[in-house]
């Protein structure tokens, strides 16, 4: 992931004579998806692709508008967003807190890391039956599944980020007579931040995944419920709308993290630009 981070500035088109040609190429990249969309629409219109398997693009667009106007879609999005948000905050706080405990002291590492490494090996989607037994089928098991999924990437990345801080800078801190608190605040935490942000992006990815799985199993509200309910009535158009909203939300949260990265890691960008 960090390799991708390093590579990005190179992709950024520069103000070179190649500029206009690049723009044409970028436009060309839209051609094949558009062609696919047209073929899809024709296949649906001619009955080659029956609606019970996959609805036509036009139908899906109309359904999206309809669901939005009826308020079904915004309500479902609201419910799902809330689950992800709460789960993400709880799991993220837990993951980062545990990483601090493990990362900042040997005793903490011995106490926390073996447990986290063992739990990490658990397939957390396999925990759903247990969660249902423990928490029923309300909001808790869904939020907790998201929280659990989020906590591991944040824990692992923050922990390795803390441990990966340059020992030479720690020596500088010693010669500058920094206190332990100052060392943590000025050297260790900012040094671990790039890796934590990598963890944050991974965490958001699995957060949506965990939510989708949790909402498929049992839900009476939310996007997952909307999709499941649509399956009962063979409404492939509603299912596709639900899936598109999932991916749009995933992309949106990823964009927020990237914005955060660009601000927090400005010191690195100066070097790469």
């Amino acid at each position: 992931m960090s390799v991708v981070e390093l590579a990005r500035p190179v992709e950024r088109p520069r103000a070179t004579p190649k500029g206009p040609r690049r723009r044409v190429t970028a436009w060309h990249r839209w051609l094949s998806p558009l062609a696919l969309l047209v073929i899809w629409q024709i296949a649906s219109a001619t009955g080659l692709l029956p609606e019970r398997l996959l609805a036509a693009p036009a139908t899906i667009a109309a359904t999206a508008v309809e669901l939005t106007q009826a308020g079904t879609l915004p309500t479902a999005i609201g419910v799902s967003l809330q689950r992800v948000l709460i789960g993400f905050l709880v799991g993220g706080a837990a993951g980062i807190l545990l990483a601090l405990v493990a990362g900042l002291s040997r005793a903490g590492e011995n106490a926390v890391d073996p447990i986290m490494q063992a739990l990490r090996a658990l397939p957390f989607f396999g925990l759903i039956p247990l969660f249902i037994l423990w928490f029923g089928i309300g909001e808790e098991p869904k939020i907790l599944l998201v929280a659990l999924a989020v906590s591991f990437p944040l824990y692992l990345n923050t922990f390795s980020g803390i441990r990966g801080v340059d020992g030479k800078l720690a020596e500088v801190a010693t010669t500058l007579k920094l206190s332990r608190g100052q060392l943590i605040r000025h050297i260790v935490l900012p040094g671990a931040l790039p890796q934590t942000l990598v963890g944050l992006r991974q965490a958001l990815g699995v957060a949506w995944l965990a939510l989708i799985v949790a909402e498929q199993v049992n839900a009476t509200t939310g996007l997952g419920y909307m999709i499941n309910d649509a399956r009962e009535f063979l409404r492939t158009d509603v299912i596709v709308v639900g899936l598109l909203v999932y991916s749009a939300l995933g992309l949106a949260t990823d964009a927020i993290v990237r914005l955060l990265e660009r601000r927090a890691l400005a010191w690195r960008r100066g070097f790469l630009a």
């Binding site: 020596e171 007579k177 920094l178 000025h186 050297i187 010191w267």
Partner: peptide
């Protein structure tokens, strides 16, 4: 190696711990 703290601007590097 100068060992400046890369995430602190130059002035903050000079005043670090002071």
């Amino acid at each position: 190696e100068p060992r400046l703290v890369p995430w602190k601007r130059l002035l903050a590097n000079i005043t670090l711990g002071l």
